[in-house]
Amino acid sequence: MTDDDSGSSESDDRGDSGSDYFRRNRSGQFDRLPETEGDRMVEGRPSREAVVDWWVDRFAVPEDTFADYTLWEKGKGKVWALPYDLEGPVPVEALGLKLLRTRQEHWKPTTDAVQRFGRAAEQNVIVLEEDRARRFIAGDDQELDWDGDWGYLVVAHELAGGVEPIGVGLYTYGELTSMVPKGRRRDL
């Protein structure tokens, strides 16, 4: 399974055409998330509060993990984090780091976000032994016993004296599906 929303270099908001028209048309813009549901002006847009709560609820990261970041939406549901205070909208190709995909039943974290912020996760983290870690980064799905929650997990392994997140796995029915985007897979 390919996960083009997980920070792939081939995400779906870019194409091949270099013309100015398509460039503008495709790029769109970044809009600041409203602080709370009550501040929301655009239907369906998640609030900053909801996004932060989701990371805390799902992965038990510290509540101040995103305290120094402004949060942005581009397109429908992709939320980005930037350590700088700007007013929007910001018409650029990329603004900070893509954290997750919202506006669907199960919000999905990106590979980039899990690698960057997942070290602080204390819940829904699965630590694989070396052989399984290599299969995971190669993109293989694998049968696995896991008595935690189903859904998106931080998949990690031991490396150089610490637990290091590799990416996002989807756990259902006794199987761990690798959500590592095609361009990030490696046969190590």
Partner: peptide
């Protein structure tokens, strides 16, 4: 260069940059 921009974005992503804004 739009083609080279993909490589720029991919490297920023893999290295976990939050502070970059990419323009074309």
């Amino acid at each position: 260069n739009l083609g080279r921009l993909s490589a720029l974005r991919a490297n920023c992503d893999r290295l976990g940059l939050t502070s970059a804004a990419v323009t074309n």
